[in-house]
Design a protein around this nucleic acid. Structure first.
Length: 509
RNA sequence: GGCGGCGUAGCUCAGGUGGUCAGAGCACACGGCUCAUAAUCGUGUUGUCGCGGGUUCGAGUCCCGCCGCCGCUACCA
């Protein structure tokens, strides 16, 4: 029995959760569910990032205190994840006392180790944005948004000596080839480091909504240096050494590609500075694109998909929670960018779920009803389906282990297809009731039982429903996988016909 | 500007180190079946692998140039 600690990023709670966040979160959830099914000891966390100037501004604009405001915003994420059946073990908010404690301890260690020093940050500042720009990012010295001339500003900050870790980071990458996956993303981070690392300022005096710097209370930590540390907060860094040792550093961060640098360069360097071994695995996923463009852009475009149409909760209401989860997991390889569209969801729904899986369950239930008096017979040990089923369970397990839900589901549905073909070959509906029919239907039910186990990380509710309909007790995800995903365990039982699991979508979208 | 990536059937995409690599799914066509959600099963069509050169006995697969799209270029997260 292994251990599996997986995290999503903590999402900046200045807006409602969108499909991009849902995409990462659903994938993390399915991976967590897979590992629970496999019998591993699992910890799965997500949460919200609630500090920073933007949050304070938004609160003020809405006539609330930052604390009141973030309570409201954070709740929207918990609602969305609840709607998507996300099985997190912990939901961290960066405004919690436990987080303040861990952040202050962690950064104090780095400070005591001599990697944090005071210096003056000079930059081009836009008064309207209340933010700094590099010369390259500016519009010839003017603010790209407000078009007013940027002013040279100086601010006294505490700096993290990132430059001191260049060699150690490169060595870490060289000795941990699986640190960042997929490999293309690893190369991106690697070449960035090879280009040289500069120190970075990690505190602000202009902001008060943040974690105070323990050795200099006029400063608060700049949001990233507070946010990254959440991964340690939830395992008790600074409060529970045993728990930290239990989950770290053999942990997994699932992140979107836009925050690659923070997780793949800054974060391991901070861990090193604190004398902590960096996390062993960061998996970087791509973006969901709409019409080939980033979500935000398209939503603003005329005639594009409306924001309200692609909010996770709205989508789950339109298509169902499990179909939405299935689409997010199945459509795109975790690591690549992928196309997101309502038509795509409907296509997956109809072809995979309604036509293949749902229809398979329906036709089997119908034949068992008419030819087996509604009682599912036992499978045969020498069924020709057995080889397919065993290959499927092996390949699917391997894919789940390798952070490839898309592949896992693809091969799982190969077994669905093989079972449909098996029924065609034997045509039990043409037979008289008896042992020949029983043999075929027992095999089909056993294949369905295995499929149900295999889809449970992706579609937990549907899996439960099918499990129940074919007369099984317990739950499809109780595992351990190695023991239950073995051909021949279907014990027979009453098979219920029931309504369509996935009524076909026929209306225009 | 610099660094990196992408451009393969109508659609979405696979294709380590060059030689059944021209593929999968969807869509489409034809045939079978009628237990099932007009679902299913079988068979099949579709491509100058962005363009132009080059290396090689042989190149989506290596090199050069070009066109188009995209990401990163450090303190919004």
């Amino acid at each position: 029995m292994g251990r599996f600690y997986i995290t999503t990023p903590i999402y900046y709670a200045n807006d409602a959760p969108h499909v991009g966040s849902a995409y990462t979160t659903v994938n993390a959830d399915a991976l967590a569910r897979w590992h629970r099914l496999a019998g591993d000891d699992v910890k799965f966390m997500t949460g919200t990032d609630e500090h920073g100037q933007k949050m304070a501004d938004a609160a003020e604009k809405n006539g609330k205190s930052p604390a009141e405001w973030t309570d409201l915003m954070s709740e929207r994420f918990r609602e969305a994840w609840s709607a998507l059946n996300i099985s997190y073990d912990d939901f961290i908010r960066t405004t919690e006392p436990r987080h303040y404690e861990t952040v202050q301890k962690f950064l104090s260690v780095i400070y005591e180790n001599g990697y944090i020093y005071k210096d003056v940050y000079k930059g081009l500042y836009c008064v309207s944005c209340e933010d700094y720009y590099t010369l390259e990012a500016s519009d010839n010295g003017s603010c790209p948004i407000h078009h007013r001339v940027l002013t040279e500003m100086e601010e006294e900050n505490w700096f993290f000596q990132l430059s001191a870790f260049e060699d150690r980071l490169i060595e870490f990458y060289d000795t941990h080839p699986g640190f960042v996956t997929p490999e293309t993303k690893r190369n991106e981070a690697y070449s960035f480091m090879k280009g040289g690392l500069k120190d970075i300022s990690i505190t602000r005096t202009s902001i008060t909504w943040g974690v105070p710097v323990p050795w200099d209370e006029r400063h608060v930590f700049y949001v990233w240096y507070d946010a990254l540390i959440n991964y340690l907060t939830v395992i008790g860094y600074g409060r529970d050494d045993e728990e930290v040792a239990r989950w770290w550093p053999h942990s997994n961060h699932l992140i979107g590609k836009e925050i690659l640098r923070f997780h793949c360069v800054w974060w391991p360097a901070m861990c090193m500075a604190a004398g902590l071994e960096p996390v062993h695995h960061v998996h970087v996923n791509g973006w969901l694109l709409v019409g080939g463009e980033k979500l935000g852009k398209t939503m603003a475009a005329e005639g594009g998909v409306k924001v309200s149409d692609i909010e996770p909760i709205a989508l789950s209401q339109e298509f169902g929670v499990d179909p939405l989860r299935y689409y997010l997991l199945r459509e795109t390889a975790l690591g690549n960018d992928g196309e997101f569209s309502l038509e795509g969801i409907a296509a997956r729904y109809n072809t995979d779920l309604a036509n293949n899986l749902g229809n398979l369950v329906a036709r089997v239930a119908a034949v068992v009803s008419s030819k087996c008096a509604g009682v599912g017979p036992l499978p045969q040990s020498d069924s020709t389906l057995r080889a397919v089923a065993e290959a499927t369970t092996a390949k699917a397990a391997e894919a789940w282990e390798n952070f490839a839900p898309q592949r896992a589901l693809e091969v799982t549905f190969d077994l669905v297809g093989a079972t449909n073909a098996y029924l065609e070959t034997h045509a039990p509906w043409k037979m008289e009731p008896g042992s020949a029919v029983d043999a075929v239907m027992g095999d089909a039910l056993e294949a369905i039982r295995l499929v149900t186990i295999l889809i449970s990380p992706a579609m937990p509710s549907v899996a439960e429903e099918i499990w129940r309909r074919i007369g099984l007790r317990g739950a499809p995800d109780s595992g351990p996988f190695g023991a239950v995903a073995t051909w021949g365990l279907y014990p027979g039982g009453p098979v219920e016909k029931g309504a369509s699991l996935f009524p076909r979508i026929t209306s225009e979208l």
